[in-house]
Simulated scan of single mutants.
Amino acid sequence: MTFDTTSEDVSALEIARSLLHAADTDIIRFFGFFSADCVFRMGNNDPVEGSEAIQEWVASYLGSVAGMHHAILEQWCDGNVIALHVNVTYTMNDGTTFTLPAVTRIRIENEKVAEYSIFMDPSPVRATR
């Protein structure tokens, strides 16, 4: 079930939804959504700034992950800021799967992701490394 409480700025929401779809299906395309000076933060980790640094961080984080799928449960958009309540199902390299709840906050500027924060406990993914 998806709840939609969006404002009139559908393009920012479409970019955010496309970003998550790319994370699930095409990681190279996923990285193409970020601005050169994007700020990325997962959970309580320190913020990572810049598309190259983000790619390195994500590659390290996803090292034991064979795939993932985001199911959007709720979405909210106010201008260029989007919040998505999701369940993320991870498939690990050994074939096991588990689902984690998360909320992402995404800020879009000039049709690129300028800020991407993920509020989630990533410890189950890290524990499989």
Rank of each mutant, 00 (worst) to 15 (best):
N44A: 08
F33R: 01
I106P: 01
T99K: 12
G67M: 07
V65I: 08
D4Q: 13
D37W: 05
S64G: 08
N44H: 05
Y61V: 11
S64C: 10
G43N: 09
R17G: 00
I106S: 04
V88Q: 08
F30C: 09
M120G: 00
V58S: 06
R41K: 15
G50H: 06
E8K: 13
A114P: 03
A71T: 14
L19M: 08
A53Q: 12
T5A: 12
E56T: 13
L62G: 00
V10G: 06
A23D: 01
A114W: 03
N44R: 09
D9T: 13
A53V: 09
M42V: 10
I28N: 13
D94N: 15
L62T: 03
L100H: 01
D121A: 02
L62A: 01
A16G: 02
N44K: 08
D4V: 15
K112P: 00
A12L: 05
V88P: 07
D9G: 02
H70S: 02
G79F: 13
T99P: 11
T6D: 13
E115P: 00
D121C: 05
L19A: 03
G32P: 04
V86M: 10
D46W: 11
E52S: 11
F30Q: 09
W76Q: 10
G67D: 07
N44V: 05
L62M: 12
